[in-house]
């Protein structure tokens, strides 16, 4: 019995020794690591983006509460930092909303061919993260299959087999489409037979749910109807992503990967300036362009001219003419978000 107890004690003491040794070894590793970390911080060329953010940038106010001087200072800091990081002269604008303008967007779903050129043009214009590690795209083109409906099906069965919820039609005429989209479709040529395409991006809602849920009020609706984000004030809680019914918002999980050569130097504070890790971003109707009177990147690049942007307050604008003369719908109108992004048909 006593030998057993001794054995147990020996075992315990050995265990203690081991743990102490372990502790010392781990402590050593940690201190070495921290020294390396300090050395990295002290190195003359710090890594890009968040590591290079100045203290002043950390402690600046919410953009809406800044005075004009503070805005100017904040922009000066950014211009300096971006120009150094990307090796070119970067402009950061703070162009305010134009009086008497409320931006509206119209997209012809009959015309869209699903070529995704708008998606790539948006990335080129708005300085999103790209590459294999983290790819952020603000526009999502959904491929929807056209319903396969025949006279026979109509008369002899209810809903066709293997198809989801139908949109359109009625009890006697089940004409419509399948309400399930493919985001990652790959095709040799577009448009494909029996498919149509529905691009989705930020709808710039008049009553945006994302703005309602933001706990720090960093995202808000500007007077021209564009919902913007002050990236510096974003805490990365991603409540807005959960609230948005249109999947419009994207999160920078990692350090954004933006090659200096591809960076678009014409930026806006609330728009396409380079973002940091841990902030949310989304389409701003190319605020850096539209507030200076130029069409957005996606409107310009659409090879079939399916995309239109204009002033909803101007009865002669193309968007108002579309609303007046075409068949128009909005996505999830039942949610009372009042999107200013309209889909139309001829």
């Amino acid at each position: 019995m006593s030998s057993q107890i001794n054995k147990q004690n020996n075992h315990n003491s050995r265990a203690k020794d081991v743990s102490r040794r372990d502790f010392l070894r781990k402590a050593g590793t940690y201190s070495a690591a921290s020294l390396t970390g300090a050395a990295m911080l002290l190195s003359p060329r710090p890594a890009r983006a968040t590591k290079n953010v100045t203290w002043a940038e950390h402690f600046q106010k919410n953009y809406r509460l800044m005075t004009d001087e503070e805005k100017e200072e904040a922009i000066e800091r950014l211009v300096k930092r971006y120009s150094e990081e990307f090796g070119k002269k970067v402009n950061v604008n703070d162009t305010p909303a134009i009086d008497g303008v409320l931006f509206g967007y119209a997209l012809n779903i009959q015309k869209c061919i699903g070529c995704r050129r708008c998606v790539k043009a948006c990335v080129a214009e708005n300085n999103q993260s790209r590459g294999d590690k983290q790819q952020i795209e603000w526009i999502r083109v959904m491929r929807l299959e056209k319903g396969k409906f025949s006279e026979e099906d109509r008369d002899n069965s209810g809903y066709p087999q293997d198809f989801g919820i139908q949109v359109g039609g009625n009890a006697y005429k089940p004409a419509g489409v399948v309400l399930e989209g493919q985001h990652y479709y790959e095709a040799d040529k577009v448009p494909e037979k029996d498919a149509f395409y529905l691009p989705m991006q930020c709808m710039q809602c008049e009553k945006p749910p994302c703005v309602k849920v933001c706990p720090v009020r960093t995202t808000y609706r500007d007077p021209d109807g564009i919902v913007v984000i002050d990236y510096n004030w974003c805490i990365g809680c991603r409540m807005c992503i959960g609230a948005c019914p249109y999947w419009a918002r994207r999160f920078n999980w990692g350090e954004p990967d933006l090659p200096a050569a591809d960076m678009n130097p014409d930026t806006h504070y609330l728009g396409n300036r380079p973002r940091m890790k841990g902030v949310v971003e989304k389409c701003t109707f190319c605020i850096q362009r539209t507030r200076k009177g130029r069409w957005t990147g996606c409107v310009e690049v659409c090879p079939v001219g399916a995309r239109k942007l204009g002033n909803l307050l101007d009865p002669d604008s193309d968007v108002r003419k579309i609303l007046a003369t075409k068949k128009v719908f909005r996505l999830r109108a039942d949610l009372n978000t009042y999107p200013k992004f309209f889909y139309f048909m001829n």
Binding site: K111, R140, Q182, E186
Partner: peptide, 28 residues
């Protein structure tokens, strides 16, 4: 159709953890 077919731009990269896009192709 009035417009000739074009080559599409590449599809987005799959999110981490998504192995394929089979879930999109099926219905119901």
């Amino acid at each position: 159709s009035g417009f000739a077919q074009l080559d599409p731009e590449p599809a987005p990269i799959l999110p981490k953890g998504m192995l394929n896009t089979d879930h999109e192709r099926g219905h119901g």
